[in-house]
Amino acid sequence: MSQVVFKNKWLPYLLILPQIAVTIVFFFWPAFTSLRLAVYRTSPFGDRTVFVGLQNFQRLFQSVYYQKSLLTTLIFSACVTIFGVLISLGVALLLNQSIRGLAVFRTAILWPYGIALPIAGIIWMFMLHPSFGIVPYLLKDVINYDFDWILKGDAAMLLVIVTAIWTNLGYNVAFYLAGLQSIPRSLVEASLVDGATSLKAIRHITLPLLSPTTFFLLVMNLIYSLFDTFGLIDAVTKGGPGGATEILIYKAYRDGILSLNLGSSAAQSVVLMVIATLLTVFQFKFIERKVSY
């Protein structure tokens, strides 16, 4: 293939300029502002600023409530990522068979992905609301269990995890289905002819061949659970009860936007930025190595 060369030296730079400009305005500029704000204590209206160096970070890491939020995030993200990917894999395997009405099932599974996360949260909240939801009502009547996520932290956590997994299911299944369909049927059929059970075929042929997809989905789900789930938490639990669902991104919002503690919030944003950067670097490194087949 012959390489196309621009005659004008500046034209290529001009062509990528819009993209660069957007990145600077919407990424580098805010990121820089966060970094700067993180070393100051600022009054809400910005009329008083005191340089405090790394004190905001120091206070952050010494705060038991930030540590608690870190732990909450760890539990939430681990559950959303691991169960989300596992369930999607199961669903994708089921949807990869030739069954009657396949198109209907596939559409139904992909559907929730089209719903904005806060809306999904509200739908689940309606079903699970202790006062007017159908599910707690049945749970109370049938097994006498009080599913009161307004007061019980564990129940609230369960609610947001389930909603987050449900909403992202379509995305995960779509990738898994694509992955499954790129596996040559002949491989699976050959193993079945050789006497492998279908479970063994899945275990030794399908899963290893799907590992790049799995790896990609693990990273994407981790990023999703860390950052995109903000709207869900805000719409449903607002980090409560008793801080039980206060993940890092929600805490940064609460401290910055609700409580106007801009210095601490900026420091938290910087921490989140570092996490996001690490995840991205990690993903690129591994994707380049193509994982293992």
């Binding site: 932290g153 009860p241 008793g242 106007l260």
Partner: peptide, 21 residues
């Protein structure tokens, strides 16, 4: 000062108390 957050903190701790934590 910081009354918004103080109210949040009081309610968070009330929730911990009412939930038996």
């Amino acid at each position: 000062g910081n009354f918004v957050e103080i109210r949040n903190v009081v309610e968070e701790e009330l929730e911990n108390i009412f939930a038996g934590k």
